[in-house]
Computed example of a mutant assay.
Amino acid sequence: MRTPEKETELTQLDNVSIVALDVTNQQQIKEVAAKVTSEHSVDVVFNNAGYGLMSSLEAMSDEQITRQLDTNLLGVIRVTKAFIPHFREKKSGMFIATTSIGGSLAFPLHSMYQVAKFGVEGWSEAMSFELGMYNIGIKTIGPGAISTDFAGRSLDTSSHPAYKSIEDKLFGIVDSMMDSASTPEAMAELVYEAAT
C-alpha cells in the first residue's frame, strides 16, 4: 500500500506483511516484486489500486487524465508484469484485478475512469491466453458501488459550467447509491472466492 504507516487493521493479522507500494512508481514496483518473491512463494497478486475521477472530459486537466490512467490501468499492467516471471517459474499463480461495473457499462462524466476499467477488462482477456500456457490465471472482479469514500465530489473532480446540470444529477445519484452499496467485507469475500 502507498502508506503502510497509516494501516491499523491489517497489521493486527497473523502472517500479514505490509510493504510500501505506489503503483505509479515503476522502480518501486520492481523492488517490491523482487523483495517479496525472494522471501515468499507468491500464489496470488491482487491489483486493487485505483480511484474515481468523475468529471466532464472538457474540465479535466492533462495531469488528471494521465494520473487516472497511470493508476487505474498502467499500475495493474506494471504490477502484473513484475510478478509474471515468478509465476512462470512456479508454473502456477493467479492475478486478480478490480475493475468495475464501469468496465462493462458506460456512464456520463466517467470517461477516463471507464477507459481505464474497460482497458483492464480487455487487457486481462488478452493476457489469459499468454498466461494460460504457463498455468497462470487472470481474473477480474467488477463490483458495483462499494461503501467507501472512493466516489464523490471530494475526490479528483473538476467542474465545467456547461455540464453543471448533469454533474448535479449524477453526484446526487452517487450519494444515494452509497447508501445501499456493498461493504468492503463483501468485496473481500469475492476476492477470496476468485483466488481459491
Rank of each mutant, 00 (worst) to 15 (best):
D179M: 03
P184W: 00
A116W: 01
G132S: 06
S61E: 13
A194P: 07
V120S: 07
K35I: 00
I18W: 04
P184N: 00
S55Y: 14
E121M: 04
A34L: 06
I146V: 15
D168H: 05
Y113G: 06
H110V: 01
N15T: 01
M133A: 04
V79M: 08
A82H: 08
L73D: 04
D22Q: 06
L109W: 10
S38H: 08
F107N: 06
T196W: 09
G142N: 14
I136H: 06
A195I: 00
A33H: 07
S124N: 06
K30T: 05
L69K: 05
G75A: 05
T148S: 14
P108E: 12
S128W: 00
L13Q: 12
T140F: 04
Y134F: 15
Q26T: 11
M60A: 15
R78S: 09
T66S: 14
M1E: 08
K91N: 15
R88N: 06
A195S: 12
D22P: 04
R88T: 12
L53S: 12
E39P: 04
A181R: 10
Q68C: 06
A33W: 00
S165N: 14
G132I: 05
K81Q: 15
D149G: 12
Q28V: 00
K30F: 02
D70P: 01
M1Y: 07
N72E: 02
V191E: 04
V16E: 00
S56F: 12
L190V: 03
L74R: 13
A151F: 05
V191T: 01
V120E: 09
G102F: 08
G122L: 08
Q26D: 13
T80H: 07
T140W: 03
L170W: 11
